[in-house]
Each structure stands twice: as structure tokens, then as C-alpha cells.
């Protein structure tokens, strides 16, 4: 691996890491699991002058239930998350790449990278979770809906670091994540995350978010609206899922053009909703 030259430091705390980021004045990158950043550096698509390795900062790897929500440390790996019983997020984390990647990649890195093909962002968006970021000026909590601003861009400031992720426990919801890729280890061509709360046979609440259907993860508002208040039936789900891609303008990839992605969104949405509603 022949990257461009860089300096390296390993801060001992979040405060030190944020300080180092601020001092580097935009020419530094945090390094967590390295599984998004290092491939870019290897190809010289990224050449930060300084790496601030946060992978050993203590206290960032816990997953705790805190009342009605989960608090997930930024350094939690996908493997950890997949085994922690955090509902939809655990199901989603298990679909990421292969065991090596899951053992290294972190939730903080995944969210900060802002890749719309990544799996965790859509799940967090569907559950209306939020991101706790610390910067030189202190800490703030950013709702997922405001966090992903464009392709590989987030609301994080240049010297801000994700400390933890907050996810509503969503007790009483059923979940489904349908990821479509060519090979087991691939990124999603399209994926759909769904959560439904069924009350008396009716879909009392419906959350649907889409992976890789635009420059950021997206909520499928039309499909949600169509199903909210409708019976939790296969027919209603099918009708709603047909609107999954409404309002999206997905970019064409090598393996999926826009029309195919829109079709996939509908197919996967139906499958995800059925899983969430417990319809075989």
C-alpha cells in the first residue's frame, strides 16, 4: 500500500482528538477502523497530511440501553453492533461486507464517511436517531435527518468528531432490512430499511428509508404515508411499496441504472415491510 506521505498521531481522549483536528486546520483525518479511509488513501484519492488515530481512545466502544434509547459509542464495530440486540441496527450491521470488514469498521466511521451506499445511515434515518458530535466549542446532537447533507458530506464541522450515536429503542416496532447486492460482500445496489408498529391490525407507524437511491440516505415519504393507518396486510404493503422510489432520482451505477434501482426499491420495500409486519 503506497499512500502519499502523512503524519500520524494517536490522541488519548476525545478532547485531544478534537484539539488535534482543530490544530491541523483541515489537513487531517480521523482514523477509526480505516476501512473507508485507507482504501481511498491507497488509491491516492485521499491524501490527508495527518492521521489522527482515534481507534484506541477509551470509552467509545460501549453499547448501552439508556431508558427509551440506545447509546452506541462511535468506535463500536459492526460485529459488536450485530451481536448487541439493537433491533434494526443489529440486523443491518450483520449485512455489511464480510467478517474482516465488520471486525474493523465502526459506526462512527460509517456515518461520518457519508456514503449513501453504506448500510447504517438509512437505518439510523428510519429510526430517527441522532448523532452526538464534539467540537472545539463543545457538544451538540444532530438528528440523522439533518446529518447527511450530500454525497460523502455530512453536517460535521471540520474539527468535529462523532462521540456517540443515539437510537430510539423502538420497542413495539417490527423491522426489516432488505439489501440487494451481487455478491455477499458487496455494497448495496439498493437497500430498504423498514420499521412498522402494528396496532390492532393497523399500521400505526411506518418508517422506510432507502440506501443508495440518491446522494444521501432518503426517507420514502410517499410509501410511508400510503401505509400509515392502513391495514397491515400483504395487499396494502404491496400498494405502498410501489411508491418506494417516489421522488428519488438515483444515479446510474455500473450494475444498476436508475430505472432498475427504482424497480428494486419497490421490490425490496415490499419485502422489508412484509418482514417488519411479520407477514411471511
Amino acid at each position: 500500500m503506497i499512500t502519499a506521505e502523512f503524519e500520524y498521531e494517536r490522541p488519548g481522549s476525545v478532547a485531544e482528538a478534537v484539539g488535534a483536528l482543530a490544530a491541523a486546520d483541515g489537513d487531517a483525518k480521523l482514523l477509526a477502523g480505516g476501512h473507508s479511509l485507507i482504501p481511498l488513501m491507497k488509491l491516492r484519492l485521499a491524501a490527508p497530511g495527518r492521521l489522527i488515530d482515534i481507534s484506541r481512545v477509551p470509552g467509545l466502544s460501549a453499547i448501552e440501553r439508556d431508558g427509551e434509547r440506545w447509546r452506541i459509542g462511535a468506535l463500536c464495530t459492526h460485529t459488536q453492533l450485530s451481536r448487541a440486540g439493537v433491533g434494526l441496527l443489529s440486523e443491518v450491521a450483520a449485512t455489511i461486507a464480510d467478517p474482516q470488514v465488520r471486525n474493523r469498521g465502526t459506526i462512527g466511521g460509517s456515518l461520518a464517511h457519508g456514503d449513501p451506499a453504506s448500510d447504517l445511515p438509512a437505518a439510523l434515518l428510519a429510526l430517527e436517531g441522532s448523532i452526538v458530535a464534539q467540537g472545539p466549542g463543545g457538544e451538540r446532537t444532530i438528528p440523522a435527518a439533518d446529518f447527511f447533507s450530500d454525497y460523502l458530506e455530512t453536517a460535521l464541522g471540520p474539527a468535529e468528531m462523532i462521540r456517540e450515536v443515539l437510537v430510539p429503542a423502538a420497542d413495539g416496532y417490527g423491522f426489516g432490512y432488505q439489501k440487494f447486492n451481487r455478491r455477499a460482500e458487496d455494497w448495496a445496489l439498493v437497500a430498504v430499511a423498514a420499521a412498522i408498529r402494528v396496532q390492532d391490525g393497523t399500521c400505526a407507524d411506518v418508517r422506510i428509508a432507502l440506501t443508495n437511491m440518491g446522494p444521501t440516505p432518503l426517507r420514502a415519504g410517499a410509501a410511508e404515508a400510503a401505509l400509515r393507518g392502513a391495514p397491515a396486510s400483504a395487499e396494502a404493503i404491496r400498494a405502498a411499496a410501489g411508491q418506494a422510489a417516489e421522488g428519488t432520482d438515483p444515479p446510474a451505477d455500473l450494475d444498476a441504472d436508475a430505472a432498475y434501482k427504482r424497480h428494486l426499491a419497490a421490490v425490496l420495500c415490499e419485502r422489508a415491510l412484509r418482514a417488519a409486519a411479520g407477514i411471511a
Binding site: L43, R182, R183, A184, E185, D186, W187, L254, D255
Partner: peptide, 14 residues
């Protein structure tokens, strides 16, 4: 297809 990300060699899983 300049890398193994999109030059899709099958793996044991496939």
C-alpha cells in the same frame, strides 16, 4: 471496472 469492488470475482459465498 478498475478494482475488485466492481470487477466482481465470485467468492465462496456465491
Amino acid at each position: 471496472t478498475g478494482s475488485f469492488v466492481n470487477y466482481a470475482l465470485p467468492t465462496a459465498a456465491e
